[in-house]
């Protein structure tokens, strides 16, 4: 870890102003926000991140730690902890996929510390990204290459990758947000704006070091999660190498609007297999208007992975991703949602 300057602004306004001033003085300043710190501190200890300035946002929990329901949607303050949201009875009943994606993530200790905002911005677990002694990592050092292409890439992505980066987006919650068409409210030097959650993450392309479409200095303040009645029929299925405290090898967030056995609308997002939270639009389209059966689920799953690009050690993810999706679809169809 390297020495850094630390501050803890007391409010959103002051936090935004402080970061604005830091960036105004030096647009390339290595400044970072800190929420629960479970990603930031980890990467600072590994020296993957070497910020000269750390702006601690934990005081914003006062303002943005809420879990509110307003008509047909939930508003979740970005500084609510993963644990609080996962345990909230209304979330569990109305949008179970949200609660499950959070409670199946990380460990109890991490869920207590970590914030929703930090969660969606967590960084990849690619071993070559996390160890600076590897020279080649385009995400860490733009233009340096990608050690994972010819390396240990069992955990890497098969969807949304590029020749420059095949890292997996590791989180769980993001898939639930994506499937439910959540939006986020961000506050920055130029005021606040709302954007679809689907527009937050950026495909790696030729610039894998740029992971989101947030503008410099913007802070995520809130998640708005629509809660249509059919969102009660939703779930998160996570396949992993051990039963808890482990990232997904493949996961599915799914919500199903189903009418007498026929799919009116399916909403599907895939985790563990893609470079960003991945909406499986082709699979959704394939299911529309069909009865949900083993066969239609398989067809949808095949559609979701039609464009998959496997590497040496992760080819199994193509088949596993499909069977995970089939299993999730059959499971959600047979679900008896809370009244």
């Amino acid at each position: 870890m390297r020495p850094f300057h630390y501050s803890r602004p007391p409010s959103m306004v002051e936090a935004v102003v402080e970061m604005r001033d830091v960036l105004a003085a030096d647009p390339h300043a290595s400044a970072t926000f800190l929420a629960g710190g479970t990603t930031v501190l980890d990467l600072m200890k590994l020296e993957v991140m070497q910020p000269s300035r750390v702006i601690d946002l934990t005081a914003l929990r006062q303002e943005f730690g809420y879990i509110r329901r307003d008509g047909a949607s939930f508003q979740l303050g970005a500084f609510a902890s993963m644990a609080e949201v996962a345990a909230h009875p209304d979330i569990i009943a109305h949008v179970p996929v949200i609660a499950q994606s959070l409670s199946l993530a990380a460990s109890a200790q991490l869920r207590n510390m970590a914030s929703l905002g930090g969660n969606v911005l967590q960084r990849t677990r690619c071993a070559y990204f996390r160890d600076p002694s590897w020279g080649a990592c385009n995400k860490r050092v733009p233009g340096s290459g990608c050690a994972a292409l010819e390396g240990a890439n069992r955990a890497h992505a098969v969807l949304g990758t590029s020749a420059h980066c095949i890292a997996t987006y590791p989180g769980d919650f993001a898939q639930a947000l994506l499937a439910l068409d959540a939006t986020i409210v961000v506050v920055g030097p130029r005021g606040s704006r709302t954007l679809p959650f689907a527009a937050l993450h950026r495909l790696p392309g030729t610039t894998p070091h740029l992971e989101t479409h947030l503008h410099p200095g913007e802070i995520i303040a809130e998640f708005i999660v629509p809660a249509a009645p059919w969102a009660r029929r939703s779930l998160y299925l996570k396949i992993r190498d051990r039963q808890s405290y482990e990232f997904a090898v493949a996961s599915v967030a799914v919500a199903l609007d189903i009418d007498g056995g026929t799919v009116r609308e399916a909403r599907i997002a895939l985790g563990g297999v893609a470079s960003v939270p991945w909406r499986a639009g082709e699979a959704e389209a394939a299911l529309q208007g069909l009865p949900l059966s083993d066969e239609s689920a398989r067809t949808a799953a095949a559609a979701a992975f039609a464009d998959a690009t496997p590497h040496a050690h992760n080819a199994f993810k193509v088949a596993l991703g499909q069977s995970t999706l089939v299993r999730a679809l059959l499971q959600v169809a047979s679900m008896e949602p809370a009244p």
């Binding site: 677990r125 160890d131 010819e150 390396g151 240990a152 051990r242 039963q243 808890s244 405290y245 482990e246």
Partner: peptide, 25 residues
């Protein structure tokens, strides 16, 4: 313990990536 043959490194030399069973297992 996974080895990257290119430099003989252990690429999961930490308790997050070197898997041990947890209570749920």
């Amino acid at each position: 313990t996974e080895i990257d043959p290119r430099n003989g490194s252990y690429i999961n030399a930490n308790l997050a990536d070197y898997l041990l069973p947890v209570n749920a297992d």
